[in-house]
């Protein structure tokens, strides 16, 4: 089942991907290197077909350059999860880099409020995984707070092992599913 975050993600992607493809750039880098989004990051199967607005007109016509840039940044923000080792909630160096980019975004857009979802792989037991997912979401939150983001802009929720991103039962899927996912709840 797809949560609200997922729907929002597709919407952003729809707005972002068309201008990228339309301009013919294989890799367009928006201002502020740290919020770069490349088509390579668009996950297979989630590439939007609905890049057009009502009447077949592209959405981009209605967007200002500023707004377009913002939406790209938002898509990059929500598109990138951080990942954890099995049964761990400490942040890896990669996770810290990603969180630094997220903090940069949150500083650029100080009205944005976010929800961090903590998730686990299917191994382990339901209630312990609820707490583990909570701890993961909280580890991400605490790091953002350390980087200067106000605590009251960040809420957390744990889904434990209940919402795997990849339903397969192997190491690759488990690694993907041990994640904190970032959702923009207000702009």
């Amino acid at each position: 089942m797809m949560g609200k975050g997922g729907l929002r993600f597709i919407l952003f992607l729809g707005l972002v991907a068309l201008p990228l493809m339309g301009s013919g750039c294989a890799k367009k880098v928006v201002q502020g290197e740290e919020t770069a989004v490349s088509p390579a990051e668009v996950r297979p199967g989630e590439r939007p077909s609905a890049g057009l607005g009502p009447g077949g007109r592209p959405f981009e016509e209605t967007l200002t350059a500023e707004e377009r840039k913002r939406r790209e940044a938002e898509a990059a923000f929500t598109n990138e999860d951080i990942h954890f080792d099995f049964d761990k909630y400490d942040l890896t160096p990669t996770a810290r880099e990603i969180l630094a980019r997220k903090a940069y975004f949150l500083k650029q857009y100080p009205n944005v409020k976010i929800l961090i979802e903590g998730h686990c792989d299917e191994r382990g037991t339901a209630e312990y995984n609820l707490a583990l997912g909570e701890r993961r979401a909280n580890a991400a939150k605490q790091y953002l707070v350390q980087l200067g983001i106000s605590e009251d802009r960040i809420s957390t929720i744990s889904y434990g092992k209940e919402r795997p991103l990849d339903p397969r039962h192997n190491e690759e899927a488990w690694a993907k599913n041990r994640r904190a996912h970032f959702v923009i709840v207000s702009r």
């Binding site: 209630e127 609820l130 707490a131 909570e134 979401a137 909280n138 809420s155 957390t156 929720i157 744990s158």
Partner: peptide, 12 residues
């Protein structure tokens, strides 16, 4: 009825 609807985790 709600027993606890605090921020973050509530339960089990």
């Amino acid at each position: 009825r709600v027993i606890s609807a605090r921020e973050n985790m509530n339960g089990p």
